[in-house]
Write a protein that binds this DNA or RNA. Structure first.
Length: 198
DNA sequence: CAAGAGATCATCT
DNA sequence: GATGATCTCTTGA
């Protein structure tokens, strides 16, 4: 049923972060796990771009937490926020330039029962429509921080679909970031019901 | 449906 | 010691 599997290569992540964030829309997020494989179509992303971007964690310099973002492209940056929720980011661009794309929502495609179990809900629309929700549904936590996205555990696939129509908005939850708060660096597939919010 | 509160902890000052 | 790149539940229209 599924198309030829084309795992996104490292060169994909080495592009400018805004391009990566846009091109990720419509791609498939694949998570392999002992309990089963889960797959979702990326419908919402956000770009965090470099040391100047006050919303980007790396704007406060290189720390133990942010060092993954300073590394090479094509690795996962996963951290815990609010003491509850994990966030999945994909490191982009070049070594020593700290940038990443946050995956904010996916449309569940495969392993839906497993997601429903982990999320304790059956509503397909509520399984992965938010950055914390999708990490729970896909069993993504800090143990995957620094994980190679060109490996076998967590990676993106080209869906083969044409690039979807999309819209942009300011990023969510970064009101503290001054002028950077308003950058239209959130990307979402237009009229998609699986986004975290319109 | 909108708004608000509370949950809970790794990280950095 | 403060603070989040959030989610869920409760309240009240």
């Amino acid at each position: 049923m599924r198309r030829p599997v084309v795992k996104l290569p490292r060169s994909f992540y080495q592009q400018p972060t805004l391009d990566v964030a846009r091109q990720l829309l419509g791609k498939y997020l694949v998570r392999r796990h002992g309990e089963g494989t889960t797959v979702g179509r990326v419908v919402e992303t956000e770009a965090y771009v470099g040391p100047e971007d006050k919303a980007c964690h790396a704007s406060r310099g290189r720390t133990p937490r942010t060092q993954v973002m300073f590394g090479s492209a094509g690795y996962a940056y996963v951290y815990l926020i609010y003491g509850f929720h994990h966030m999945l980011n994909l490191v982009t661009e070049t070594k020593d330039f700290p940038a990443a794309v946050l995956i904010r929502a996916v449309e569940p495609l495969q392993g839906i029962e497993l997601m429903a179990e982990r999320r304790a809900t059956k509503e397909r629309r509520n399984l992965a429509s938010g950055p914390g929700k999708l990490c729970q549904a896909f069993a993504i936590d800090r143990t995957l921080n620094g994980n190679d996205l060109c490996g076998e555990v967590l990676y993106l696939e080209d869906s083969g679909d044409p690039a979807p129509k999309f819209v942009t908005t300011p990023r969510i939850g970064v009101d503290y970031a001054g002028e950077w708060t308003h950058k239209p660096w959130r990307f979402l597939i237009r009229d998609n019901e699986f986004v975290s919010r319109p």
